[in-house]
């Protein structure tokens, strides 16, 4: 790692001030950022640690019936505390990485990083959640802008994610055997007014909604509704672990399995 200073603000406001410094970067759970720093792929001069900000932690039901998860909430807490309200989300959180990673990694960090193979972006997009920052509220559909790219401005942090709670939801993951990240994973959420299907791990563009599947499932919510639907392999990630065609195929299989788990 290159050297850097670390500041530990106690409030969001202090964090935003600290992030105004040159080459400042937020540090959430660090489960992606620290390995990146070790590889010297980033060179911040200041890391603004978000882990001491009490107001960014916790899982609560909002007055509007949405599940509000503080941006600094670690996966293990979401896995436990969202279970009663939104088991589909809790189930996803309970299988991110491994137990030690889940005790440090946060939803805000994961969403802000938008790794094309991360789990949380699928839940956020698949739920039609709202990403709340220190400055504004951003709809999930507007938030994810491609691999490692989001609508966040420089110095803007994710303070909360608000999840509308679907009738039911399920996350189906096929892991890449080395990293244990998804090779392909699909989050299917059935709401009263329609179905959302979000896919992670597959596309060069990062997490995306499979609208064809959503339309079919919004008509009839069963596995058969998906028959014949497929995605083109040429826009999918192709690497050591699988071709674009294989990933495209897995998207269909994982979607069917997610739906199968819900009917």
């Amino acid at each position: 790692m290159y050297d850097f200073d670390v500041v530990k603000p106690a409030t969001v406001a202090e964090a935003i001030t600290a992030l105004g410094q040159d080459e400042a970067q937020p540090l959430s759970g660090g489960q992606t950022l620290i390995p990146t720093l070790k590889a010297r792929l980033a060179m911040p001069s200041v890391l603004v640690s978000l882990s001491g900000i009490e107001e960014m932690r916790g899982v609560r039901m909002g007055d509007d019936g949405q599940l509000c998860v503080g941006g600094g909430t670690v996966h293990a807490v979401v896995a436990k505390e969202a279970q009663a309200h939104y088991p589909g989300l809790a189930g996803l959180a309970a299988r991110i990485g491994d137990p030690a990673v889940r005790n440090r990694g946060t939803i805000g960090g994961s969403v802000a990083n938008n790794d094309p193979s991360a789990c949380y972006p699928a839940a956020v997009l698949g739920s039609g959640a709202t990403v709340v920052t220190n400055a504004r509220e951003i709809a999930a559909d507007d938030f994810f802008e491609g691999m490692f790219a989001t609508a966040l401005d420089e110095g803007e942090i994710v303070t909360e994610v608000r999840f509308p709670i679907p009738e039911k939801a399920h996350y189906e993951k096929f892991i890449q055997p080395a990293s244990r990240f998804p090779l392909v994973a699909v989050f299917v959420a059935k709401f009263a007014d329609g179905v959302r299907v979000a896919v992670t791990g597959a596309s060069e563009e990062g997490v995306f909604r499979w609208s064809e599947a959503e339309n079919a499932l919004s008509g009839t919510f069963n596995v058969e509704a998906l028959s014949g639907l497929s995605l083109p392999g040429d826009s999918m990630i192709s690497d050591l672990h699988g071709s674009g065609d294989f990933r495209a195929h897995l998207v269909a299989v994982m979607t069917k399995r997610a739906v199968g788990a819900l009917v």
Partner: peptide
């Protein structure tokens, strides 16, 4: 994982 946490944290 102590290798993925800063001492100051």
């Amino acid at each position: 994982k102590a290798c993925t946490m800063l001492a100051v944290e």
